[in-house]
Design a binder for these strands. Structure first.
Lengths: 165, 165
DNA sequence: CGAGGGAAAGAATATTTATACAGACCGATG
DNA sequence: CATCGGTCTGTATAAATATTCTTTCCCTCG
């Protein structure tokens, strides 16, 4: 033990929660890298214990770690909230004609969908939130493409595909 | 493999869901014993795959497997409710590429849609319920086919519930 | 001050879970 | 019928996770 350990554990666990909500974490090793990058030098064993204490849950279709209750970030303007939600929840964007599929971690489609609705973008006619995906119906293919690009930018880097089926 | 494997998988997964809800299962080996006892000779590998498909989640304070979305106190799972809803309302299933159309009697699309959403199937990205039709968007054609088959089976099997209870 | 207790965490390891691979089994097709 | 394509599964194994054991650091008493 080198580092001081007063509120250490609590802060670390908070970081863990944050990381897990921000991106899709599928192993403790992957998580460890993130947490280390955030300045906490931890081992897998400790993470295993932390995860249990926090009550994180692993599995679902995505196989990622999830926070049980879901998340509710505090309000900003609709637009900035959407950007924030996109950067936080959005994992991938696909488009099929005028339909856009937004992929998130399990249970995160709902908050993203709410943010998207609230933003009232002209490209969005309607949305349907699944468990880990939001279906967005755009007026036409052109605007679906616009939306796709916009969200991919917000996401940070576009990993999505654009199948024209 | 000697036994026939028609709706095998679906039944087995349904049993898994039941077992997991009935008692605290903390490992696949433990689950395997229960499922075997229910008449399904199955290996850990298959359970691992089933668990992912069903969308079960492991962790939390208990470290047990959980059905996402909480547990119904009366013991009815979202899955069994869906089977019941399907057998009751579903008249026909069509598929067009990755879109699945569920036909019901007038005014019955909504309840079926609710059941479908609650089941959180991995093949279901999102749903839109009309008056007598539910549109289901699957991630791709393959899973749309899976869903189609599954629902047609449920539709044919009248009373939905399985053996072993 | 010097036990004694307890939380915290690393190292090593046991246990558990996911996966690569291959075989069996349809169903459709030519 | 032979073949191809798909799904489903078991076996063996890799990968991931939980746990045991041990040490280090505070505290709190006496």
């Amino acid at each position: 033990m080198l580092a001081p350990q007063r509120p250490m554990k609590a802060r670390r666990q908070s970081v863990i929660l944050d990381v897990v909500q921000r991106e899709s974490i599928r192993s403790q090793e992957q998580l460890r890298r993130r947490v280390c990058a955030a300045g906490f030098d931890v081992t897998q064993a400790t993470l295993s214990r932390d995860i249990r204490e926090i009550g994180l849950v692993k599995g679902g279709a995505s196989g990622a770690y999830l926070a049980p209750g879901g998340v509710a970030p505090n309000g900003k303007t609709a637009e900035s909230l959407l950007l924030r939600a996109a950067s936080e929840y959005l994992l991938r964007v696909d488009r099929v004609q005028q339909l856009v599929l937004l992929h998130t971690g399990l249970g995160q489609a709902q908050p993203l969908c709410v943010a998207l609705d609230a933003a009232r973008l002209p490209e969005v006619v309607g949305t349907v939130a699944g468990e880990d995906t939001v279906l967005v119906i755009a007026p036409d293919t052109r605007r679906a493409k616009m939306l796709t690009g916009r969200l991919q930018t917000a996401m940070g880097e576009g990993t999505g595909q654009d199948l024209g089926k």
